[in-house]
Design a protein around this nucleic acid. Structure first.
Lengths: 177, 177
DNA sequence: CAAATATGTCAGCTATGTTGACATAATTTG
DNA sequence: CAAATTATGTCAACATAGCTGACATATTTG
């Protein structure tokens, strides 16, 4: 390779027409989702930089605050990560007093997770700018429009997905290793 | 600490009421966005696992296909990552024949990026399931509803953001290091 | 009691981002 | 033209957040 990379095309088939418009693919919404999510997540990122936490902590703090007393297994299922991956961030959050563990009242093997005051405050601080951004994007939209937005977003989610306040009944399947 | 972590609450202030409903924060859409994006990105992830590529490659292949001939600087600006971070994945994509570089016709310092046939095919293969998911989520929605969705997503994006086919004129500001 | 379950933990690996420093070629400017 | 700036590449070191595999401990269940 030359010093600054290949200069000439390697006589490969090079395409210079933009992708899109031709095929029946919705590139517009694909990209809107990419940019929307990127900016949506950047709000809390800025706050997290201050606290020394990252996105992983954000998610944990969020869901523990949304469903206090949820088990580690339920949290893993929501986040779709492994317990080893969760362990690091959870330990940090517990050690710094944002989340507390309590042995399950029925099943004492469980560690039920609760937010502390601090944890609640952090979760709210992180949610606030995101909610503001959402309110701004919904501004001037009528009820039909808002319904369309939530219908669309719900329709993007996998049917069997485990979301809070849903199917708590089924037996565990996978991802726990 | 005990072998399996703290068992009893450290007499900290523990909260057992779910967050939400109380404050004026839109937790519903916050979570819908999280789950929607998580599942939206999982479709191409499965394909990428096969090719040995990751999400970073996906983004590069996507934008190069959407705007063939874009410069490295423009790509960095779109992705909002550093050139060192881009370098790794871009090199892999070039070495394996998905993307080709051509010296800029006007400014020969530039390396304009083009997809090869292979690169075009990969980008289409990755976009197809995402587009299918979107079509599914929009199904049965009238024109007003669809407009509401794109209006909402556009409204979530930072105003000054650099998106393809937009402001090519301004001078560089930051992120290049 | 034995097996299964919920959780924790150690060790090592990968992907993708970061900063800092420096190099080269080409363009622009004084 | 020489100097400065620009576009890009590259080396090195590091951080975060995932992953797999293996094993330990406490508790519940059959």
């Amino acid at each position: 390779m030359n010093r600054a990379g290949a200069i000439k095309p390697e006589s490969d088939q090079i395409l210079d027409r933009p992708m899109g418009d031709n095929d029946g693919i919705d590139f517009e919404i694909i990209e809107l989702l990419f940019f929307a999510y990127r900016d949506f997540i950047s709000d809390p990122d800025a706050i997290l930089d201050t606290s020394g936490f990252g996105r992983a902590h954000h998610r944990v703090v969020h869901f523990v605050n949304r469903e206090p007393g949820l088990t580690v297994a339920a949290l893993l299922d929501t986040l779709k990560i492994t317990k080893q991956s969760l362990a690091r961030v959870l330990k940090q959050l517990i050690d710094s007093g944002y989340i507390a563990q309590v042995a399950g009242p029925e099943d004492r093997r469980q560690r039920r997770l609760f937010p502390t005051d601090r944890g609640r405050e952090l979760a709210l601080a992180l949610a606030r700018p995101q909610s503001r951004r959402i309110a701004n994007a919904l501004e001037g939209m009528d009820e039909n429009g808002r319904t369309a937005v939530t219908t669309f977003l719900s329709g993007m989610i996998n049917p069997g997905a485990h979301r809070p306040e849903e199917d708590h009944s089924e037996i565990n399947e996978g991802r726990d290793q």
